[in-house]
């Protein structure tokens, strides 16, 4: 898979719903359309719901991947 260029990274280890989505959304709002945000999560319910909420907001979820023991990354491109 082609290497994705990350514009910003947000480490949300230790955070739970709803802050995982709220903080991701706030960072995304500061970014330019087309830019890519990488979010690090260690809370399973958030791994299900952050991507779902991002899609519902019209953003493009590029990848959801487990990167370690109880650790996931969610990669989102800002669309609007």
């Amino acid at each position: 898979m082609e290497e994705i260029k990350i514009d910003r990274e947000l480490d949300l280890k230790g955070e739970v719903c709803p802050f995982t989505f709220v903080k991701s959304k706030l960072i995304l709002e500061q970014m330019e359309p087309g830019q890519i945000l990488r979010v690090i999560l260690d809370y399973k319910p958030s791994v299900e719901n952050v991507p779902k909420s991002m899609r519902e907001e019209g953003q493009e979820v590029l990848e959801v991947k487990q990167i370690g023991e109880n650790l996931w990354e969610v990669i989102v491109r800002k669309v609007r």
């Binding site: 709803p18 989505f21 319910p45 719901n49 779902k52 909420s53 519902e56």
Partner: peptide, 10 residues
């Protein structure tokens, strides 16, 4: 269906 406070708001 798994949801969240965001889903509830919607």
């Amino acid at each position: 269906e798994s949801s969240s406070m965001y889903g509830l708001a919607k």
